[in-house]
Design a protein around this nucleic acid. Structure first.
Length: 479
RNA sequence: CGGGGUGUGGCGCAGUUGGAUUAGCGCGCCGAGUUUGGGACUCGGAGGCCGGCGGUUCGAGUCCGCCCACCCCGACCA
């Protein structure tokens, strides 16, 4: 571990973006890689990703979707088949032109997303209505060359899952699209303790090649929104582009209806931004790789203490708490306290002579620094209670923050005022004309984020052109 | 791609308007010992052709030119 002084930690309260980068490096979640725009996810950070994977993969399997693996390299011509798709992605592609020491006759694109390779196979595999639905997901990495990068939030390579399903009917397909975005909402809410808003994207903001895109938007502490996952209704765009048909019950050729949905390591970036303070990270217990750390307080080798700690650790492990004991007595107590605080471990247990004598432990909460003592017989109950409380409090805090920073704007002046101030989410009428959207973006940096799933049609006037509008869209500056 | 910034031991930096010798400092690292309830201390060590190339000069970390890399801010994006 690279040691550093507490005074050298950047302050979240002063500059979110500096704090964010600093804390990711110092908590050892990730580091910059030798390749521009790429990052190394370190074991601690990867453990967080594994928690996310486990949770989300569970939901995916529960839905009957199976995991598979498709190749990293995609023949360029596959991408060219769907016009909007290639237009959207071509500026971001990394392309292999030489392999085995020879110039390739056909260039290979490193996948930016796998629609095209996967559907090429679907077309070969599935020919009958009996083969539908196709329910396939893969966990992998993709590369999208970005001009400007940011640890976790925007790197040229990132990890994700991409689900790609195909259905016989439009309605069934749509049901799956919505299932996808709701699975992400659940992951954020229940695992990552974050409150997100789900809804549909505008035509300019949707995925390249999709008919419709649904997104979950999360509000960050600086008032900017993070797109935390998307689920795309691809309609028949790809099946038509690839000329994939199946025979329906009537023996008629139909193009399957398709959807794709992705959730990335970006979510870790959002998690960090939302959950932390000037002392470092605060991981919600359910995603925390280590939920409780035991700090041995001792002036030297102490066999009895070691045994006592082992006993406590055993109790917690047995009850399913992820616990780690830090017996590194060559480092001072304060040093160890702080190191684990930076890493965001929810609960610290201090165990020394005092605790041993009283058959107890001292606990300290990472989120509010509450400290107390609990007897060994009560420890399991106490720790679990605190973990549960921290989890729900974290979610509640983010929910409250999001709602407190969501505004209704009925005039463009008001809109601009909010966007030049502390920002946040703005609900405003928009006529759904691309030009108004573009101008609002140019003038305020705010883009349409979503139209909520449960939005009710109202009578209103476009915030920009004042023409009649029926929907209040969410606007925000975006990451 | 536009704007800004930074490259000097592992990390963070200093290095006056060009002048010396052995390029300093803090942290970290290694060894020995003493310590441990909020970032310990003492002593002793290891570790650098100052991003690269070229130029000016008796003399360049320092001046000039070109290049490279990375970071931050904008446009693109999960």
């Amino acid at each position: 571990m690279q040691k550093f002084e507490k005074k050298d930690l950047k302050k979240k309260s002063v500059n979110l973006s500096e704090w964010y980068t600093d804390i990711i490096l110092k908590a050892e979640l990730a580091d910059y890689a030798p390749v521009k725009g790429c990052m190394v996810i370190r074991p601690y950070g990867f453990a967080v990703w594994e928690k996310i994977q486990t949770f989300l993969d569970g939901l995916i399997k529960e839905k009957g979707v199976g995991n598979a693996y498709f190749p990293l390299l995609i023949p360029e011509k596959f991408l060219n088949l769907e016009k909007e798709h290639i237009e959207g992605f071509s500026p971001h592609l990394a392309v292999v032109t030489i392999a085995g020491g020879e110039n390739l006759k056909e260039k290979l694109v490193i996948r930016p997303t796998s629609e095209t390779v996967m559907y090429q196979m679907y077309k070969q595999w599935f020919h009958s209505w009996r083969d539908l639905p196709v329910l396939i997901n893969q966990w992998n990495n993709v590369i999208r060359w970005e001009k400007r990068t940011y640890l976790f939030l925007r790197t040229s390579e990132f990890l994700w899952q991409e689900g790609h399903c195909a259905h016989l009917t439009e309605g069934e397909n749509r049901e799956m699209v919505l299932w996808g975005i709701k699975a992400y909402e659940k992951t954020y809410a229940e695992l990552l303790a974050m409150y997100g808003l789900i809804g549909i994207k505008s035509q300019t903001e949707k995925f390249a090649g999709a008919k419709e895109t649904y997104s979950i938007e999360l509000l960050m502490p600086d008032g900017k929104a993070l797109q935390g996952g998307t689920s795309h209704d691809l309609g028949q765009n790809f099946s038509k582009a690839f000329d994939w048909t199946v025979l329906n019950k009537e023996g008629k050729k139909i193009h399957p209806w398709q959807n794709s949905w992705g959730f990335t390591t970006r979510s870790i970036g959002g998690l960090v931004m939302v959950n932390g303070d000037d002392n470092g990270l605060i991981l919600p217990p359910r995603v925390a790789p280590i939920q409780t750390v035991i700090i041995a307080i001792s002036s030297g080798e102490n066999q009895k203490l070691a045994e006592y700690i082992e006993k406590i650790q055993g109790i917690l492990e047995k009850s399913g708490v992820r616990v780690k004991s830090d017996n590194n007595i060559t480092a001072s107590v304060g040093r160890r306290f702080n190191d684990w605080e930076v890493k965001g471990v929810p609960i610290r247990l201090e165990i020394g002579q005092k605790e041993m004598e009283k058959e107890s432990v001292t606990f300290a909460r990472r989120d509010n620094f509450d400290k107390g003592t609990v007897g060994i017989d009560q420890i399991e109950i106490k720790i679990k209670a605190i973990l549960g409380e921290m989890q729900s409090l974290a979610y509640e805090n983010h929910r409250k923050f999001t709602l407190d920073n969501t505004y209704k704007a009925d005039s463009y002046d008001q809109f601009k005022k909010i966007m030049t101030g502390k920002r946040g989410l703005i609900r405003a009428f928009w006529c759904e004309d691309k030009e108004c959207e573009a101008k609002i973006k140019a003038e305020t940096k705010a883009t349409t984020r979503i139209l909520p799933l449960d939005a009710k049609k109202e009578k209103g006037k476009c915030i920009y052109c004042t023409k009649a509008a029926v929907n209040r869209w969410y606007f925000a500056q975006a990451y």
